[in-house]
Design a protein around this nucleic acid. Structure first.
Lengths: 238, 238
DNA sequence: GGTGCAAGAATGATCGATCATTTCGGTTGA
DNA sequence: TCAACCGAAATGATCGATCATTCTTGCACC
């Protein structure tokens, strides 16, 4: 605990606010297009304006919030076209990463995949009884699993970009979750992908992985479409 | 001119400092691993600390500078492994983008490629007589040409990521240039790529494009290797 | 001679005040 | 009725001072 506290102590305020806001945006506690008022946020976190500003700057560079000169920050909007765009990029980049890993990844890569899958399967998907309850530990394990699949590709740039795509997708996934969507048979899909990957069956693994992404996107798509329609309707009537 | 001035006026200080620093880093006016002192920069641009800080924050998120909590900012280091890593990612992502564009790009895409190539070929490569003189207009046209090749892929995420990889590569290219390297037969390579692309010869176009990237990287690699060796040697002897 | 350590100098981070721009309501005049 | 136009309020951007951390350097001690 002391160690943990010390590590947190070393962080700057900007860094911890950045982490906090980022998490809230990804998880959907702060909805898309929400105005992010600097003074309000400063008051909420009991800090001055500078750290908030810096945190928002970083989020803007990550494209989680949108910055407009002299007009402040808003949470990046979501839309069906962007979801499709994002999903395409995600399929393509993960395909490259996975193929390269299967072709050139060593024993360590294979073991990494195995371990990541095992950890994920040993972590409960939800923390509470309700299907809406999320379990951050599982989400982290899930992220780690997907990263492990491409970890042997030989390019940190690619890995990092896949990471960013993963995050952007997570936001959509969480918005779906908030709308009551449930994605049931994840465990099996993950197992099949893992199996195909460590068996070095490239085509099969890629197909399974892409289908996995597409399925999630298709599910979320309806909700986002409705939300977008609702939001534009609201704007019109006002 | 008035229009231009007005547009610049609207920008915040942070935005324009960000653009300025970014350009200097890419072009090599500020060398890798240079410490970026906030007060000095503020004095240099005659502004306070806040805009400088924000500009650096953004550059850090773009990975052009490295930020370390409580220890400030330095220009992102270069290294041979990173160049290889970067080049791989660049080849892979552009391959995907190009293949998708060739497969699904319409007339507008084809025309975009043609126009971009034409503009680039009509812009002089260098502004002055010296081979070291660079011409920002050509560089912009070059960037636009490479973007046009993948513009029909159907994913803005992919395009944006290729853009970022392009920039990272530009920094290496400029460091090579500063070391006296000359990359002669660019025009022909570009023409061949363009031709294969609009002829929809996917395999050929991809091969040419990848070779184009690899060739540049191979050239720069030596210089970066020497520079890295020099820098570590310097550190040791001090 | 080398090793720690302790001011103090340098630098990064944060704050609150102030300046600039945008937004919003109310008013006026066609 | 409506659009254009004014302040005034809200909000974003910037500044310079101050606080906190890291780095330097000179000195004591082994």
């Amino acid at each position: 605990m002391t160690t943990n506290d010390e590590a947190l102590q070393k962080q700057t305020l900007a860094t911890s606010i950045h982490a906090q806001l980022r998490s809230e945006i990804l998880v959907g506690s702060i909805l898309p297009e929400t105005k992010l008022n600097i003074r309000d946020l400063g008051e909420r976190f009991s800090v001055g304006l500078s750290p908030v500003r810096e945190a928002l700057s970083r989020l803007a560079a990550e494209r989680l919030v949108h910055q407009s000169d002299n007009r402040g920050f808003t949470v990046m909007p979501v839309s069906v076209p962007e979801l499709l765009d994002l999903t395409k990029a995600r399929c393509w980049l993960n395909e490259v990463g996975l193929r390269q890993s299967i072709a050139h990844g060593g024993m360590d890569w294979e073991e990494g995949v195995l371990v990541a899958f095992h950890r994920m399967s040993r972590t409960p998907r939800r923390s509470g009884a309700s299907s809406g309850d999320r379990n951050p530990a599982w989400e982290e394990a899930h992220r780690a699993f997907h990263q492990s699949l491409i970890a042997g590709c030989g390019s940190n740039w690619l890995i990092e970009m896949c990471e960013r795509l993963f995050e952007a997708s997570e936001r959509y996934r969480h918005l779906g979750r908030l709308a009551g969507l449930v994605r049931a048979p994840l465990e099996d899909e993950h197992r099949d992908i893992m199996q195909a990957a460590i068996d070095r069956k490239a085509d099969e693994a890629v197909e399974l992985l892409n289908a996995h992404f597409q399925r999630t996107a298709a599910l979320v798509q309806k909700v986002v479409g409705q939300a977008a329609a609702f939001s534009s309707k609201t704007k019109e009537t006002e």
